[in-house]
Design a protein around this nucleic acid. Sequence first.
DNA 1: AAAAAAGTTAAATAAATTCTTAACAAACTT
DNA 2: AAGTTTGTTAAGAATTTATTTAACTTTTTT
Lengths: 183, 183
Amino acid sequence: MSESNERTEAKIEEAKYKVIGAIAETMDLYGVTPAAANLYATMYFKDQMTLDEMRKELEMSKPSMSTSVRRLQEIEMVKKTFTRGSRKHTYVAEKNFFRSFMAFYCQMWEREVKMNLEAIEEAQEDFINVIKDSTSTPDIVAEAKKYYDQLEESKTYYHWLDDLVESIRSGKIFEFLPKDKQE
Amino acid sequence: MSESNERTEAKIEEAKYKVIGAIAETMDLYGVTPAAANLYATMYFKDQMTLDEMRKELEMSKPSMSTSVRRLQEIEMVKKTFTRGSRKHTYVAEKNFFRSFMAFYCQMWEREVKMNLEAIEEAQEDFINVIKDSTSTPDIVAEAKKYYDQLEESKTYYHWLDDLVESIRSGKIFEFLPKDKQE
DNA sequence: AAAAAAGTTAAATAAATTCTTAACAAACTT
DNA sequence: AAGTTTGTTAAGAATTTATTTAACTTTTTT
């Protein structure tokens, strides 16, 4: 009876690890560090965890868990919770993939839009100066114009990406693509 | 006059590098190797390039350019072109960010959906076996059920992600989020 | 307020990834 | 068909990134 319990518990662990491995590998692919990826995937099957529980479960150092959980908080995939009776900090994983993964992408995309649009604006100013420069030869003016137009055209993409983020944040995208649509 | 040309040409180069740096940094963030990221960003301002031109421009080894350009082809951000008169292979960068970046995401997301759904299906089977196992205690059955339901719930997300990929591939998403909307 | 426990920062080690050098294979030219 | 040019594969070197150990700061308890 007790041995049977152990066997079925082991089966449950095995099943969980299949999913943990898949989730962690996916996150790895998106540039999340292995420790953070494994931690999130592990926490996905737990109600809440303390740093010491994480260290024990993943067999890793406490600073590694500390930095990993902070990174996961930054991308809003883990939140701190207050558990009375314990003075250790407790953390819970966001179990709703819509929220956790979308928080991740929106953050990435917003950063991308901001940084690239800034670079584009600066470069376009430079190209305008070359075009207005009376010492520029016709060839050089033509070149500067070509690049200016190429960048102007690319802005469409960044504005679109910004709109996509906004429609995800507001939930409007689910009017177009419902969550519960049958496969 | 010639010195002035050099100065304005240098200004153009400087402006280009601002954008090249931003694009490459963004790609870096998404897990593309620095060499490939820099290469794509550089090619974004070129009509076409050969391996030797890449090596010269980026001051890197030929094998590095070879593997980088292959990786960029895999994610459909670069395509091979036939240039008659030259026996060197020539490559062009996809200049339309809608196409290049969307190809990248669709590929990543499809992989994510496939791998994770496979793991989920396997794990759910395992949980069902534990539930049906007559030697399982009520506690264990309850635990297995809890995880089974959690995974069942998560499938909604993967199906939605699959729908998103489909709507991007088909272009239907642009009916909801137009490309040319004003900022 | 002192002591203990929990968590973080910083430096150092370990591991993994990226790039290069060198050898090889394929394709094109003469 | 032999030689030359182009491109790739494989092994090794170097850089970078991730993790750990150790010292330190903060918080909590007695």
